[in-house]
């Protein structure tokens, strides 16, 4: 008994250790992100950053509110389409174009959320999938998206009138800045009183209701925020790659973001980022092989669900080393 007690509640010194380790890791990662374009292709890194932000936004909903959306591609792809259109056709600056993408994705999230939160659990997943498929068909048929061709040669423009984003390195630091702001926003949300209520809904919805919280409104707010962040990621992605296509709104994209989050660790801040890095790298390696990527992603999916439900980061936190360092496995 005493043994399990000792491992269940880490000593204050260990908790402090964990905080210190987290700070060191954070600084190291920041340094790495600042320097890494010297060694790797900026375009590849920007892709990772976009998907990492997408997954982190998705995790705000799955990890911290307990809602599995199978339709987040609608927000990611929707953000991409709106920004691409605003920048290319309306001639807006990149910052305004991104704003249009984020607001559009949030609006889409509000509509889908209002319908989907009427059911819970598995039904919620199926409804979000169906609604995003509906949006896919809308994008296929609407005039502004150019159907199968998508919106091509989107100009990156000049950020705030000073920073020319057509320069690859400038673009990288711009994307990094957006990414860090997005992660910071998520961190603020989950550590705010609002985030605490979301977690209590995740743990026990009935109890949160009995405590007097309008659970539906909190869920909807979380859904819209998550959609907005996914939209931000999609907007930036459309500027990085200079196009927006149907791939971004297809259901496979919704599956990919689930995989990234699951692989990295549901309900951890850093997990989705690592998961996104791994999945994008994997896709890059397999891009030239005849084996469809879905074979590998499908197998990884099954293995994660069967064996590593906490994801890589979550498993580390729950491991003996992680616990000794003072990480909590359920944070």
């Amino acid at each position: 008994m005493s043994h399990s007690d000792a491992t269940a509640a880490p000593a204050p010194a260990a908790v402090q250790g964990a905080t210190r380790i987290k700070a060191v890791i954070l600084l190291a990662m920041l340094g790495f992100l600042l320097l890494v374009p010297m060694f790797l292709y900026p375009i590849f890194l920007m892709k990772i950053l976009c998907f990492a932000l997408f997954a982190a936004g998705f995790n705000l909903l799955l990890g911290y509110t307990g809602l599995l959306s199978f339709g987040h591609a609608a927000f990611f792809g929707g953000g991409a389409y709106f920004t691409a259109h605003a920048v290319k056709v309306w001639g807006l600056s990149p910052e305004l174009g991104i704003l249009v993408g984020v607001i559009g994705a949030a609006g889409l999230g509000l509509i889908m959320g209002l319908i989907a939160i009427r059911r819970q659990g598995i039904y919620f997943a199926m409804i979000t999938l169906a609604l995003s498929q509906m949006f896919f068909f809308f994008c296929l048929q609407a005039a502004f998206t150019n159907g199968e061709d998508g919106i091509q040669s989107v100009p990156r423009g000049i950020f705030l009138g000073v920073l020319d984003l057509s320069n690859q390195i400038n673009m990288y630091y711009f994307v990094l800045g957006v990414f860090l702001l997005g992660i910071l926003a998520i961190w603020r949300i989950i550590n705010s009183p609002f985030g605490m209520i979301l977690k209590s809904i995740r743990e026990n919805e009935a109890r949160a209701t009995s405590l007097g919280y309008t659970v539906a409104r909190y869920k909807l707010a979380a859904f819209v925020m998550s959609a907005a962040i996914a939209g931000l990621a999609g907007s930036v992605k459309s500027l990085v790659f200079q196009f927006a296509t149907l791939t971004d709104v297809a259901w496979q994209m919704s599956g990919e973001v689930i995989l990234m989050t699951l692989l990295g660790g549901i309900g951890t801040l850093i997990g989705p980022v690592i998961g996104a890095g791994l999945v994008v790298t994997l896709q890059n390696y397999l891009a030239t092989s005849p084996l469809p990527v879905t074979v590998i992603t499908g197998v990884v999916f099954m293995v994660c669900v069967l064996l590593f439900r906490r994801g890589l980061v979550g498993e580390f936190y729950a491991s003996r080393i992680g616990r000794r360092l003072g990480f909590k496995s359920d944070s």
């Binding site: 599995l68 997943a125 469809p292 992603t297 499908g298 999916f301």
Partner: peptide
């Protein structure tokens, strides 16, 4: 059958992975 005791969402995620694997294999 290993997933019945868990949240039902894991069954959905597992079969999703299964679907991707089967379809990818046949495409190959």
């Amino acid at each position: 059958s290993r997933l019945y005791k868990l949240d039902h969402l894991y069954g959905l995620l597992f079969t999703f992975g299964l679907a991707l694997t089967i379809e990818g294999t046949f495409r190959y």
